[in-house]
Design a protein around this nucleic acid. Sequence first.
DNA 1: CCGACGCGTTCATTTTTTTGCAACGCTGCA
DNA 2: TGCAGCGTTGCAAAAAAATGAACGCGTCGG
Lengths: 303, 303
Amino acid sequence: MSALQYLRIFNYIDAIARHGSIRKAAEGLFITPSALDRRLQDLEEDLGAELFERHARGMRPTAAGELFLKHAREQRADFERLRGDIAHLRGLHRGTVSIAASQALAFSLFPDIITRFRQKNPGIDFKVRICDHNSVVQALRDFEADLGIVYNVQPSADVSPMLEVEQRLCAVMAADHPLAQQAQLRMRDCLRYPLALPDASLGGRMLLDAFFARSSLSPQVVLESNSFEMLRNFVRGNDAVSFQIQVGAALARVQDGVTALQIDDRGLGTRPLTLAQLKGRHLPLPAMRFAQSLRDALEGAGE
Amino acid sequence: MSALQYLRIFNYIDAIARHGSIRKAAEGLFITPSALDRRLQDLEEDLGAELFERHARGMRPTAAGELFLKHAREQRADFERLRGDIAHLRGLHRGTVSIAASQALAFSLFPDIITRFRQKNPGIDFKVRICDHNSVVQALRDFEADLGIVYNVQPSADVSPMLEVEQRLCAVMAADHPLAQQAQLRMRDCLRYPLALPDASLGGRMLLDAFFARSSLSPQVVLESNSFEMLRNFVRGNDAVSFQIQVGAALARVQDGVTALQIDDRGLGTRPLTLAQLKGRHLPLPAMRFAQSLRDALEGAGE
DNA sequence: CCGACGCGTTCATTTTTTTGCAACGCTGCA
DNA sequence: TGCAGCGTTGCAAAAAAATGAACGCGTCGG
């Protein structure tokens, strides 16, 4: 990445906000605090408003500062898009798609789709951040991700959904588990075994809680974790049962000793898996392409 | 307006594009051609693409250049909006609304609405550019206007309409014209008098042409002009009749010796007057407010 | 209560970036 | 063919940004 003179000031201010102090930010930018301070002061004078509240321990953005930060981050993202568009014009179809997704998708879905996408578009590379529910939306807001994928997200004013796919719950268990042979699997069957549940930070737990609340059955929870990988590895070694939403369960991957079966209770609702972008934002071309691929893959899998 | 360090480069490139040559642009920017040239070269190197084709007589933007120009103009407009939003935060509700409109609205509608709007929002001032049909859309595209108002505009992909009001045609004539007394006015009555018609560059002419094409009546056109003011002043002094769309006709202004009457032919179609903005653009707050005012005024007048 | 710490800030100075000036080479046109 | 207008280049001057060493001011720990 080149020096990028034009958005220097934007990077400066953003750094101050992210580090919470001029000194830390200056260190991160490899300049002295005084230089950074002057840039900030000039800017504040130019805008006629303070962008940060000065505290003894550091700086916190004012309302005006928040506005400026949003603008700055948008500028940066937008300039990257411009750069990509121009490169595209030159015939080299290169670029980066950055995605924030909650954990459920990390395993089978993403690697497969990305692999397939890169076969068609070899010049495009990916930045995938797996993070917790709320951080996905925040990453979109901060222009750190082009696309966000979350399960059961609550609608919000500055995020616009591009695709919603209802997701049923799957039971995850060892490949040689007694239940693995059944043609139809009901929740009540699962409850005869110890359970390994995703914790509240993961989507899908909500669905389970709702079911347990309305049901008279009492589950025997032996493990609770915020890591699906953990849960999967756990159930492989014993007769416990875990749960995961459809796309995350990776229906066909039996080779690692774990299998997933759809649960047929209709008492168990479904929640949508949502592909979203920041409202009003112009996405870079590669991101739009990839969104289309996701759309195809997810809508195909939904049936 | 302050020095605006950050978008200097954007202004530079925009100036080159507008003036068509580095030397002219440099003159307009009060710098030397060499300085401007170096800035351009640095930028081109940074982006890895030429932004202008070098001709012996000057510079013309390449495809990449067009992309950059759009970005640059958008940046400038966006930064102005940011500045306005921050000022708004400080309590001073000030700002500028820039509008491009075709001629029909220049007379009664705009002055009245703006006056009323400024009574409620004294800090907001206006930049109204009256221009020809196509320039309105172009002004939106170049981020030179926040809002555009055109009669009978053809839909286009990068413009999004915010409001459409069907407009009938009115006949404009001297206040003491024989026709001015009639309760109901039909086209056939008007054709008994000499006509002063708006030319093809003005909206409304199309409606007339369509009517004449289908009608057996032959009009006696004594004056054709691209200026409504011209037409109005002309009919005041004799028995000629001119035409204008509803909002432009300023129904109640008899004091200047001219009156306007709605025409009751149903053979004469209606076309929409459209309030529009550039698609996907974030409008400054004052512009949004004013758009709302226009909406109220035009929808009220439409009934 | 006090000294050390981390903070933002200021000032004179140095470094980097931008601009100016004069000249060059090129192209189209009379 | 010469001239006028163009983009471009090298080198010096000017402007902008960064430095490094202070200063003042709250906060925290003893």
